[in-house]
Design a protein around this nucleic acid. Structure first.
Length: 661
RNA sequence: GGGCCCGUAGCCUAGCCAGGACAAGGCGCCGGCCUUCGGAGCCGGAGAUCCCGGGUUCAAAUCCCGGCGGGCCCGCCA
């Protein structure tokens, strides 16, 4: 049971659910749903603050719906002494509950006053150790808006779970062994051979992104040219036309890239065009790095570190998203982890050769009913075998990720691991969990969650990291912060330049995060900067603005809230005032639910509603002009409550709440 | 070919898992409020075959079956 007093609203919900359960229990009856799920705020105010559809109990209890409602209502009423539950009414098949606003206010004010920043934290009955791996972008180009969705989600989940009392560790996986990194390293190698620049100009990840795109495009041009010649010799007209088209595209992309830095481009072009076989050199880098050869380690780490430095600037410096651990994929390989994993795999009954490569075959495992249920496998899905080792002896990303999955559990002694990873990686993520089961890591497999999110698109932008066609997250943040600064300057000239700049940062960054968190992760989204920066409703600035206004009212009232003067009878009577209280008091319940269901968007939806109700209320029921001493104190308490909730809820999303803006 | 996800007013989003009372909020549009605690605001209005068709149920946006449309995935890439 949650500590009493931290969530009075939730206690009312649970009281209603508990009485329903008891009623069923006494009759030896059951229903499928958890009764708590059936409690909901009714659609209209005359139906009260909470309702329960007693229809559901009628059949199991062998009664008519109306009778069941009457019976439950009388039970709830009898159990309500000393709680926030007030009037209880059976209406049709529903039981409607009106909260006792005065009592609710007394308890919620008390909680907000004593808990402060901790208001809204409802400790879970079962605290877990949870690892959240998120963002983990390829270290070859700057972060873009899709990574921002990943980062915003991962960070919000971490904050939500921490608020629920779990122990959370945030990790970033540096994938430095992929082909893309080898391509980048190849470019860096050529630059250094030719005496070109090897240190970033400007922000390091942006510069790295350019080197990568130039290198990749030039290598592709070489490869395509060679294939074109071969096709010509073979007289394959169709193929020639296809490749010619591809080559034209590549040359176009190259021209765009050259405009960004002609010296860099020309240096790389000369070097790569002179190289006998770039692909072979890239493969050599991959092998040498995997086997930890000195020259390759220096080369690759040097390049990747630069990119990571840029990531940190954006994530930690600008977005306030911090990590506890930065894990290098290569460390897993150079240490014994991946090697040991492969040994285990070779001993596994699921080990098989697939196209002559070492692999795990899931044909039999995927039919296991328990496995199917726990992993949610569709019946007719054939899961392809997972190849573990390339024929040249190097490992594959998925293989290393299996080792990493085990490592994440071990290193933190974790009960659960949540991976925030793009939805397009569903199959490999599933294969990893199957592999864990195949190798005897059943507990890990069942407690590893792929938190999938869909792509983010920018209107009219087609992105490609390999071609250097992307909008960097940094420039979106810049635009958001700049627009925020303009808006603030327009409306509040008393802040001063430095304070304006700081608040603009909080507002601009908040707007971007809020927009990314407001949409369910399973939905592909279009990120429209104009909408985000519109700063009207359903945006962070709208919420932050409500918070600033609440802060200002309290500041004008001067000093401490006279809690001792509060007249709780002022809670009833004024409909908007009452509604605001009830809505604000729902926060701890919402925060707990959002954490348990891993759904930050619930907090966003809630904030939209609360800010709106606050803005509706305060012009029609002025606080400072209130002459009755007890009522004035009550209203100040209410403003304090709302301010606390707005600030803490934004905090769960990693969004700051400025006192003024 | 198979699998996963999405489909709610002109546009964006919530509600769907756990079925209930006239389907909620925003943008945009139309009309009011230059209201004393901050107009990034407030009030009012128009606007919805909840993709389609069956089924289950006292009750379906929600569950089941069959379609349609869109996205993604089925590499010795990551």
């Amino acid at each position: 049971m949650a500590r009493s007093g931290v969530d009075p609203y939730g206690e009312a919900v649970r009281l209603l659910a508990r009485e329903a359960s008891r009623l069923l229990e006494e009759k030896g009856a059951t229903i499928e749903e958890k009764p708590e799920y059936l409690v909901s705020p009714p659609p209209r105010p005359e139906y009260g603050d909470l309702s329960f559809p007693a229809f559901r109990l009628a059949r199991p209890l062998g009664m008519k719906p109306v009778e069941a409602a009457k019976l439950l209502a009388s039970r709830v009423s009898a159990a309500s002494t000393g709680t926030v539950v007030g009037r209880v009414e059976p209406v049709g098949g529903f039981v409607n509950v009106f909260l006792n606003a005065g009592e609710l206010a007394r308890r919620v004010f008390e909680a907000a006053r004593t808990l402060g920043e901790g208001f809204g934290r409802v400790p879970t009955e079962k605290p877990l150790r949870i690892v959240i791996e998120h963002t983990s972008a390829n270290p070859v180009h700057p972060l873009h808006i899709g990574h921002a969705r990943n980062a915003a989600l991962g960070d919000a989940l971490a904050r939500l779970l921490e608020a629920r009392g779990h122990v959370v560790q945030r990790r970033f996986y540096i994938d430095d062994m992929g082909r893309q990194v080898a391509v980048l390293a190849y470019g860096m190698m050529k630059l250094s051979e030719r005496g070109g620049p090897t240190e970033p100009r400007g922000k390091p990840d942006h510069w790295i992104g350019l080197v990568y795109a130039v290198t990749h495009t030039l290598v592709d041009i070489r490869t395509t040219r060679r294939m074109l010649e071969e096709a010509r010799e073979a007289g394959d007209e169709e193929r020639v036309r296809e490749l010619q088209e591809e080559l034209d595209d590549l040359v176009g992309a190259a021209a765009e890239l050259r405009e960004r830095d002609s010296q860099l481009f020309d240096t790389l072009a000369d070097a790569i065009m002179a190289d006998e076989d770039p692909e072979e050199t890239i493969a050599r880098i991959t092998r040498a790095y995997e086997f930890g050869e000195d020259w390759a380690v220096k080369l690759v780490r040097g390049a990747v570190e630069k990119c990571i430095e840029g990531f940190r600037e954006t994530l930690e410096g600008r977005l306030g998203i911090r990590f506890d651990k930065w894990d290098w994929e290569s460390d897993l390989v150079w240490g014994s982890l991946v090697g040991r994993l492969l040994e285990e795999a070779r001993k596994s009954p699921y080990f098989a050769l697939h196209k002559e490569a070492e692999a795990l075959d899931f044909k039999h495992l995927q039919r296991d009913p328990e496995v199917r249920e726990r992993l949610g496998l569709p019946e007719t899905l054939e899961i392809p075998p997972l190849i573990l080792v390339r024929s040249d002896g190097t490992t594959l990303y998925t293989t290393r990720d299996i080792a990493y999955s085990i490592y994440k559990f071990r290193d933190f002694n974790a009960d659960r691991v949540i991976n925030v990873i793009a939805a397009e990686q569903r199959l490999p993520q599933l294969q990893i969990r199957l592999a864990l089961i195949a190798l005897g890591y059943r507990r890990e497999a069942y407690n590893m969650i792929h938190y999938a999110y869909e792509m983010v698109n920018l209107p009219g932008v087609k992105m490609s990291g390999r071609r250097g066609r992307y909008v960097a997250l940094d420039s979106l943040i810049d635009a958001a912060v700049q627009k925020a600064g303009e808006e603030i300057a327009k409306r509040n000239r008393e802040l001063g330049e430095e304070r304006t700049r700081e608040i603009a940062r909080q507002v601009g960054v908040g707007a971007v995060k809020y927009a990314l968190l407001g949409v369910n992760a399973a939905k592909p989204m279009v990120f429209n900067l104009d909408d985000t920066l519109n700063f009207e409703r359903n945006t962070a600035p709208y919420i932050q603005y409500a918070h600033a206004r609440a802060s200002k009212i309290l500041a004008k009232a001067g000093g401490e809230i006279p809690w001792g003067d509060v007249d709780y009878s002022a809670a009833e009577g004024h409909p908007a005032r009452r509604r605001l209280l009830v809505e604000a008091s729902r926060f701890p319940y919402i925060a707990a639910k959002a954490a348990d269901e891993l759904r930050p968007e619930l907090v966003v939806e809630y904030l939209n509603g609360l800010a709106e109700i606050f803005n509706t209320w305060y012009p029609q029921d002025p606080v400072l002009a209130e002459t009755d001493r007890g009522a004035r104190a009550y209203k100040l308490g209410l403003v304090y409550l709302v301010k606390t909730v707005l600030r803490n809820a934004l905090g769960l999303l990693g969004i700051p709440a400025p006192e003024e803006m």
